[in-house]
Computed example of a mutant assay.
Amino acid sequence: MRIAFVGKGGSGKTTLSSLFIRHLAAASAPVLAIDADINQHLGTALGLDERTAAGIPPLSRFTRAIKDYLRGDNPRIPSAAEMVKTTPPGTGSRLLRFGSPSPLDDWCTYDFSAADAAADENATVDLAGVRLMVTGVFDESDLGVACYHSKVGAAELYLNHLIDGPGEYVVMDMTAGADAFASGLFTRFDATLLVVEPTRKSLSVYHQYREYADEYGIVVHAVGNKITEPGDLAFLRGELGDALIGGLTFSRAVRAQERGERISLEQLEPENRTLLADLQRRVDEVPKDWARYTELAHHFHVKNAHSWANSSVGKDVTTQIDPDFSLVDHMAVVSGV
């Protein structure tokens, strides 16, 4: 399952996504965590010190190498230079699978399982099975000449070529607000969890996101944050109804985490651990629809081709779409069907 955490800036996307990742890891589920926010804090939220988190090589640094690897022997993509962020897989493309090694593991993945837990046994004790990727931050060369979505293109390509099977999770901390709609990345998930504070401003972001997502049939659930009194949750429930799964109440453990202290999931309050279980249950209820996933990938590839990619590459990149290739067949192999 692929899950995106979205919401307005400061709503607590990173806090909720890091707690959800810990919850999945505690159940021994393999997790790929991806930090795609312009403010890259997911690594520290998962317990890494700032120096280690900042030292993770970003996906964006290896965009060309990733393209070269993923295109494989696909005759529709003769070079990495002709591959764009929306290019879908086809016959001959290399697909990525949980548990199957790829060069990306060495290039730009931090593996908590392989971290030096012996040197700090409390650092990663509850994150076995979790891998972390980051899209990267703006550097001086980007200022004034690039948008942040140039950083997340490699992540979109990664998800386009990923086959995830039952009990495997991708959790992405997305960029804030409606910025998530500046590319087709928002369609690469099975479920979207929108973090909402008990304020009118936060609700307006939810309704804007929901309006855009509904146009493409994207499943969006709301999860409350910064719930300090019963009235906060009642307010959100009255506004959002069944779309609201629940809310994270005031937590001393979360406050400690945000101060940079290491916490374990056991330190979280019972009602908040229940919320995380409810999030997983709601996510797991979403049916996997590879056919729709492929349809949207092709739709946004064509849209990007006509908007900018054809002129950028110098040829018609819509010919990269392989009508005879089906992710459904590859998913069946992974699932053992």
Rank of each mutant, 00 (worst) to 15 (best):
I227G: 13
A213R: 05
T187D: 02
F186S: 14
D214F: 02
L132S: 06
V220M: 10
A146Q: 11
V130Y: 01
D139M: 04
A182T: 15
R131S: 12
G238E: 00
S150W: 07
E121M: 10
D242A: 08
H161C: 09
V195C: 09
F189P: 09
I227Y: 06
D126S: 12
Y158W: 14
A213T: 02
A213L: 02
F181D: 10
Q257R: 15
T199W: 04
D232W: 04
E215C: 13
L159H: 04
V196I: 11
F189N: 09
H207E: 05
M133V: 03
R237E: 10
A191V: 13
V171H: 04
P230I: 08
D179Y: 05
V145W: 01
H149E: 12
L143D: 05
A234D: 05
M172Q: 13
G129C: 06
G231V: 11
A191E: 07
T192C: 12
R200S: 12
D214R: 14
A176W: 00
D139T: 08
V254D: 13
L240M: 02
P230H: 03
R131Y: 04
I245N: 03
V130T: 02
D173Q: 11
F235G: 13
N160D: 12
Y158E: 09
G184Y: 02
L132A: 06
N160P: 09
G144Q: 01
F138P: 06
R200Y: 06
D214N: 10
T135F: 00
A123G: 08
N225W: 02
M133G: 04
A253N: 09
T124S: 13
D139L: 05
V195F: 04
L240C: 01
E211I: 03
D242N: 06
